[in-house]
Amino acid sequence: MSIEKFESIYERAALRKGGTAQLELLLNKPLPRSELAKIPDDRWLAAFTEKVFQCGISWNVVRKKWPNFEEVFFQFRIQPLLMQPDEVWEEKAQDPRIIRHLTKVKTIPANAMMIYSAGLQHDSFGNMVANWPSEDITGLWAYLKKHGQRLGGNTGAYALRQMGVDTFILSSDVESYLRNYGIIDGGRDTKRVHLAANQAFNQWKEESGRSLSEISQVIAYSCGDNRVLVSASEQ
């Protein structure tokens, strides 16, 4: 399949954003793999939990309450959380300091177990993520969906991006671009769509020498509304 050259996408994004210099200022770059590997397990769990709670409500509402989440859930330390009996989670879900949502609260021990189990195999969850091949980044999305809870769709990908992982995101702008250019069709969260998108991003990465994260943001800035309130990390 023939896809648009990344150079053309970049030029269009730069034109829309006031030039190359302005566009470059908007682009967030991923962390080096060596730094990803050092991120402690509790920070991964915190990131996943934050994104789970942000689904369906204002992200800023969750951010304002986030210090309370850290307090209520032991700073997301894996071992203390895994030691809690089932009834404790129902009590915590009623705590007025956080956003009260039992189903989402119950993702915390489930995702803590995913992180703990990965650590047994890979020394740490961060080490597993750091060594995951970027050419199969949607495979990491699938891992989070299969082994975690409520990390499917864009939730897991947004959390990974927030943590500095080199990943593209099927945001509304990126998804619209891929559909308009015939790169994907069908359900956004299907394996076939993920594979087709991943292949296209791999081609653009080889062409440009840029990260998946940068490419994803450039595509988003080349089309769509790009509202001022939408940060680069959300593209």
Rank of each mutant, 00 (worst) to 15 (best):
F6Q: 00
I9W: 08
E11I: 07
R12W: 12
A14P: 09
G19A: 05
Q22T: 02
E24G: 05
P30A: 06
P30K: 01
L31G: 09
L31C: 09
E35Q: 10
K38Y: 02
D41T: 01
D42R: 12
R43A: 12
T49R: 11
V52L: 03
W59T: 01
V62L: 07
K65S: 03
V72D: 05
F73L: 10
F76P: 09
F76H: 06
L82P: 02
Q84Y: 00
W89S: 05
K92R: 04
A93Q: 00
P96A: 09
R97Q: 13
I98K: 01
I98L: 05
I99G: 02
V105A: 15
I108Q: 12
P109D: 03
P109L: 03
S117C: 08
S117G: 03
G119H: 01
F125G: 02
M128I: 08
N131S: 15
E135V: 12
D136K: 11
T138K: 10
G139V: 06
G139A: 12
L140Y: 05
L144T: 00
G148K: 12
Q149F: 07
Q149V: 05
G152H: 08
G153F: 08
T155F: 15
T155I: 14
Q162G: 15
T167D: 12
S171D: 01
S172V: 03
V174K: 05
Y177F: 15
N180R: 15
D185S: 10
G186Q: 00
G187F: 13
R188L: 10
D189K: 03
T190S: 15
R192S: 07
H194E: 03
H194M: 01
N198D: 12
Q199L: 14
K205S: 11
E207L: 01
V218Y: 04
I219R: 07
I219T: 07
A220F: 03
C223A: 13
R227I: 08
R227A: 14
L229Q: 14
A232R: 04
E234K: 04
E234I: 01
Q235S: 09
Q235C: 04
